[in-house]
């Protein structure tokens, strides 16, 4: 009896200690949205636009640390901070089909201190499919920093085939499976390329978590071909593990024809691009300041030297062009792809 009472007292006491710890912790962690709702003092956001920015900027990356978009952000963030003379924090908000990050930015104050990093067309396409409870169209693009097209790679058993032979194999049913990053930008592009205007065929999409895995599957013969990012397949093509057939855009990485050179319409408009965006309610002069700084950062010697040394495709897309591309996707993608069917 005594032992039981002692245990119960000990249990209650320790539970109370744990509770105090958790309460303190909750206070420390707080809620990001609440913390910035009542003003901007903690980020140093002054109302005087002549001094914008006078505190830390945050780049919200919709992917995990170490991913493709994150790698760019970690190189561009310090460059942007250098131009504006403020610190820049990288805030990884992965998940939710790349919508957690933009959703977080949508919940912040429209003061220009929180900047979303977008991957097009995947982010708007994901938003159209998932219909989350924030308005992605309330964002405005400030400039792009990277873009690349797709390359079709095939297993080396078909290295002697020409691109039309491969496409005919899909049209006649000899091939059906094709690898792609599930719901990624190139999945959207591939869906467009199935149309009558382009290849006039149907692909059986086999989803993989990343380009490296579907390229490995092509090399092993699990699937005959894949739509890969240009950069993602270049090493394997160069080392002879897979064979490139054609690209969607002009590129120096491959010595193969583009879709246009094969006689199909240009596919430039469906390339993947990455860039920065803020809420459109951010004051215009702040958006101007950020857009100019993004231009300077992307074209800075440090970033361009890194791009050249690392083989990353970094080039500036002007603000208007990037913003037009971004907003066009909302109207045109549903015209080009039956999103309901695509999402099944």
């Amino acid at each position: 009896m005594t032992a039981t009472n002692t245990n119960r007292r000990a249990f209650t006491k320790k539970l109370a200690l744990g509770g105090v710890g958790i309460s303190l912790l909750a206070g420390c962690l707080g809620d990001d949205d609440e913390a910035t709702d009542d003003g901007s003092d903690d980020t140093g956001n002054g109302e005087d636009d002549e001094t914008f920015p006078d505190g830390q900027l945050t780049l919200v990356v919709p992917g995990g640390a170490g991913g493709g978009t994150d790698t760019y952000a970690r190189e561009l963030g310090p460059a942007l901070g250098g131009v504006l003379d403020v610190p820049v924090e990288i805030d990884n908000r992965p998940g939710g089909n790349q919508l957690i990050g933009p959703g977080h930015v949508a919940g912040q104050e429209a003061d220009g201190y929180t900047i979303a990093v977008f991957n097009l067309p995947a982010v708007p396409a994901g938003w159209l499919i998932e219909e989350p409870d924030f308005d992605l169209q309330a964002f405005e693009g400030l400039g792009g920093f990277a873009g690349e097209g797709a390359v079709m790679v095939v297993n080396n058993d078909y290295a002697d085939w020409d691109p039309e032979d491969v496409l005919d194999a899909y049209r006649t049913g000899e091939f059906s499976n094709i690898g792609v990053v599930h719901l990624g930008s190139f999945h959207m592009m591939g869906a467009v390329l199935e149309s009558e205007e382009y290849f006039d065929t149907e692909f059986e999409w086999i989803g993989y978590p990343d380009a490296a895995e579907h390229n490995r599957a092509v090399a092993s013969g699990e699937i005959p071909a894949a739509f890969s990012s240009e950069a993602g397949a270049s090493e394997l093509v160069e080392e002879g593990e897979v064979t490139a057939m054609f690209t969607t855009n002009e590129t120096d990485l491959y010595d193969v024809p583009t879709i246009e050179e094969l006689g199909y319409p240009s596919a430039d408009f469906i390339s993947q691009s990455r860039g920065f965006a803020v809420l459109e309610d951010v004051p215009d002069d702040r958006k101007d300041t950020l857009a100019e700084a993004i231009d300077d950062a992307v074209n800075s010697d440090g970033v361009q030297d890194w791009a050249e040394a690392s083989g990353q495709n970094v080039h500036y897309t002007p603000r208007e062009e990037f913003n037009d591309n971004f907003h066009t996707i909302f109207d045109e993608l549903p015209e080009l792809i039956d999103l309901d069917e695509f999402a099944e």
């Binding site: 493709g68 790698t71 970690r74 190189e75 490296a212 270049s234 090493e235 394997l236 160069e238 080392e239 593990e241 890194w306 040394a309 690392s310 083989g311 990353q312």
Partner: peptide, 10 residues
């Protein structure tokens, strides 16, 4: 990627 090294067969 950050250091310009390409993981792959090379």
């Amino acid at each position: 990627l950050m250091h310009g090294l390409n993981p792959g067969p090379s």
